[in-house]
């Protein structure tokens, strides 16, 4: 008991997700022992079946809300958590499963499952912030483990996390990458996408596909206009890029619906 006294209690929760963001925490191999020294890992089913009861000082929440049971469970998690941080595209923007928001989920279940009647699911996949107040959202699919450690460190030492919400372009320029959009004519989501990955894709001469979700103040309509007018992207490509892992992020959702609507009018 004395071992855990005084250390903040950390919990890691999973909702509809692939577990990749939780694994980022386990992937912090060099820092894992330091983390275990700094916090009491009280609830983390991916790592240990040992469960310490709440309340928790910091809850990391992975995954989106897709069932009625999870709608209730996230409220219970919130009640037990002093601070709640969402990790990843699912928890922050509904994830890839939010593609159902643009279609009929019953049609999907009928097509996929032999007995769709056993499937109890909501019509939409929604971010955690739709259901409970969230203290910080860490974007990315998956999240960057260094940013995760930064967020935990910031929480532990009561300072703002250094997770700049500017574009991926800034990261490209800091690395000295040649812009794939301007120099190669490759459609790239970088100018509207939240930094954090370190501009990995453009560093390997491919376009950003927006897995970190929208940056602050994104101008998606101007980006889509240039993609179509100057980079020869068709509308399907534009919509697909807005609807990867952050389809339900408001800026991307609005723009993808606008693009579809315009297509319908033409």
């Amino acid at each position: 008991m004395s071992k855990t006294q005084g250390r903040p209690k950390l919990a890691v929760w999973k909702f509809a997700s692939c577990d990749g963001c939780q694994l980022s925490l386990l992937d912090c191999e060099d820092e894992l022992l330091q983390l275990a020294d700094a916090v009491d890992i009280a609830y983390f089913m991916e790592a240990s079946s040992e469960q310490v009861r709440g309340p928790y000082d910091l809850s990391l929440v992975e995954g989106s809300i897709t069932t009625e049971a999870d709608e209730r469970r996230i409220r219970e998690v919130r009640e037990q958590s002093k601070a709640l941080v969402t990790i990843g595209a699912c928890a922050t923007a509904g994830g890839i499963q939010a593609l159902r928001n643009f279609a009929d989920v019953q049609e999907f279940t009928a097509a996929v499952y032999a007995h769709p009647e056993y499937i109890a699911t909501l019509k939409t996949s929604t971010p955690i912030s739709t259901h409970v107040p969230v203290d910080f959202e860490l974007q990315g699919c998956p999240i960057n483990k260094k940013q995760l450690l930064e967020v935990i460190s910031a929480f532990l030492h009561r300072r703002p996390p250094q997770v700049p919400p500017h574009s991926v372009c800034v990261e490209c320029k800091l690395r000295g990458n040649v812009c794939v959009w301007v120099a190669h004519g490759t459609p790239c989501m970088g100018p509207v996408t939240h930094a954090g990955c370190g501009a990995i894709c453009p560093a390997y001469s491919r376009g950003c596909y927006g897995c970190y979700g929208p940056k602050e103040n994104p101008n998606t309509s101007s980006l889509c206009h240039w993609w179509q007018q100057e980079l020869d992207a068709d509308r399907a490509t534009v919509v697909e890029n807005l609807r990867n892992f952050n389809a339900a992020a408001p800026a991307f959702e609005r723009e993808s619906r606008r693009q579809e609507q315009r297509h319908g009018e033409e």
Binding site: C169, V170, P191, V192, P218, S222
Partner: peptide, 13 residues
């Protein structure tokens, strides 16, 4: 402002 992406490329370049 309708066109600008506020991506910061101009200032970095």
């Amino acid at each position: 402002a309708d066109r600008c992406l506020s991506c910061a490329n101009c200032t970095m370049a």
